[in-house]
Design a protein around this nucleic acid. Structure first.
Length: 301
DNA sequence: CGGTGCCGCATACCAAGTGC
DNA sequence: GCACTTGGTATGCGGCACCG
């Protein structure tokens, strides 16, 4: 059934004339008259009685109007809502993030964005980078936050699938408790001294530690003694404070502890490895208005 | 990519009713 | 009777889909 013919019928019913309907629909009365005739031919029933001054609905006309008027009105409202949604950020944003970043930094940014655009909702996925990149690739996330190092080893992030935008940079520092530092004589530590220590890591394959060793010594000790693996920065900091071993942290996570002297940095200095915390998107995906607004919001700092 | 057919619409015109 | 309003319809044009 042709929607335009139904709209012509609706307008004629409301005005009891083809002239009024034509004005409403911005067409000539001839077009209205023709649409109406075709609709009647299609249904096989007269919808109006042609009177001297206008058109009077038949019982079939009344019945049809009662059915289609709510439908056409709700259809128009729905289309209007969809159009206005395209003009302002709204809807669901699916975001992946490392656990520590998702807990500490992101909630503030999400709150500020939503204060500005209350029609936006978030679905936050906390997890390790490998899993988040897989979800992004499968189209189950709109963005993910990732750690990007200058490490020359092959990285999935450097494939042609993804586009990267740096949000901010942090120094990667190897730290331990003051007691652990003194017990293991870690002032001017060599790779051999460090290789004899215990380590704590975020990731089961301890990429963070390997990357730190490659950066500072251009090689990784053949055997690292991993005392703890935990994907939670608070747990990791507490374990380091208890002298369980050494762990690599983004500088912002342990700044207070380093300043108070509760933790000590090993080989600390300007030569520390830089982690560019970046926003990752699929390269060939055209970002929506909401996604573009969110990227702009994060990049604004 | 051009030919063809269909469809919606506008234009022009006709018919009928109404008011002065 | 005439001007005006309104509805109906023949005709032509333009846009679009389909096909070879």
């Amino acid at each position: 059934m042709d929607l335009n013919r139904l709209r012509a019928f609706q307008a004629v019913y409301q005005h009891n004339s083809t002239v009024g309907a034509a004005r409403t629909l911005s067409v000539t009365r001839s077009a209205v008259s023709q649409s109406l005739s075709k609709l009647e031919a299609e249904i096989g029933v007269k919808l109006f009685t042609r009177a001297a001054k206008g058109l009077v609905p038949t019982s079939a006309g009344h019945s049809l109007f009662r059915r289609i008027d709510p439908f056409l009105s709700s259809l128009e409202n729905e289309v209007r809502a969809i159009k206005s949604a395209g003009e302002r950020p709204s809807g669901l944003l699916r975001l992946g993030t490392p656990v520590a970043f998702g807990r500490c930094y992101l909630p503030v940014k999400l709150a500020a964005f939503r204060a500005r655009y209350p029609e936006v909702e978030f679905a936050l996925e906390l997890g390790n980078q490998t899993r988040l990149l897989s979800l992004l690739e499968a189209g189950e996330l709109d963005f993910t936050i990732a750690d990007v190092f200058d490490d020359p080893s092959p990285s999935r992030l450097r494939s042609s699938l993804f586009s990267l935008e740096t949000l901010f940079e942090e120094r990667m520092t190897l730290v331990c408790s003051r007691a652990y530092f003194e017990d293991h004589r870690l002032e001017n530590a060599t790779i051999e001294t460090l290789a004899a220590c215990n380590f704590l890591t975020y990731q089961s394959q301890n990429f963070d530690l390997k990357s730190w060793f490659r950066h500072h010594f251009a090689k990784v000790p053949p055997q690292l003694s991993i005392a703890l693996t935990v994907d939670d920065s608070h747990a990791l900091i507490e374990a380091v404070k208890c002298s369980l071993g050494l762990a690599v942290f983004g500088s912002h996570l342990v700044e207070p502890e380093l300043e108070s002297g509760a933790l000590r940095a090993v080989l600390s200095g300007p030569a520390d490895e830089i982690n560019r915390i970046s926003l990752v998107q699929l390269l060939d995906k055209k970002p929506s208005l909401t996604e573009r607004a969110f990227v702009k919001h994060l990049l604004a700092g």
